[in-house]
């Protein structure tokens, strides 16, 4: 199996709003630009759950939806509208069935998520 290396389309405000509805996350920081700016943010930004889901889906497609048994992420940085993400993953040496993962901004390379996945034996 080759390593995971996928670049996503840019995250958009519409996608963030769509995810707010789908996941029931109505924190105004993620959809209300004046609210986010008053709180000191440059703009609204994606929920960590959205980024984790984008990476999780890519991992499921890579390893197989029915084989994916475990998944963990650490949130490292905010994803802003317009960011496209490079999703990477590779087997961990010496640990069969375990993979290390990362999501980084395509522009500049800032890491937004690190993580791991495991597959069923």
């Amino acid at each position: 199996m080759s390593d995971l290396d996928v670049t996503t389309p840019p995250v958009t405000r519409t996608q963030i709003v769509r995810f707010a509805g789908a996941a029931g996350d109505f924190n105004p920081m993620h959809h209300d630009e004046p609210f986010a700016q008053a709180a000191g943010q440059d703009s609204v930004f994606a929920m960590g759950q959205l980024t984790a889901a984008i990476l999780g889906d890519a991992v499921a497609a890579w390893l197989g939806r029915d084989r994916l048994a475990g998944y963990g992420v650490r949130f490292k940085a905010k994803v802003l509208p317009g960011d496209d993400l490079v999703l990477t993953g590779a087997p961990v040496d010496g640990e069969p069935g375990r993979y290390e993962l990362q999501a980084a901004k395509a522009d500049g390379g800032e890491v937004v998520l690190t993580g791991w996945a495991t597959t069923r034996a």
Binding site: T8, P9, Q15, R18, F19, G21, A22, A23, L50, A53, I54, D57, A60, A61, R65
Partner: peptide, 16 residues
């Protein structure tokens, strides 16, 4: 429909 809505929001295209 909630699964479809969620998959659409994330950009997941797997027919499952």
């Amino acid at each position: 429909e909630k699964i479809r809505e969620y998959a659409m929001a994330v950009g997941e295209t797997n027919p499952l």
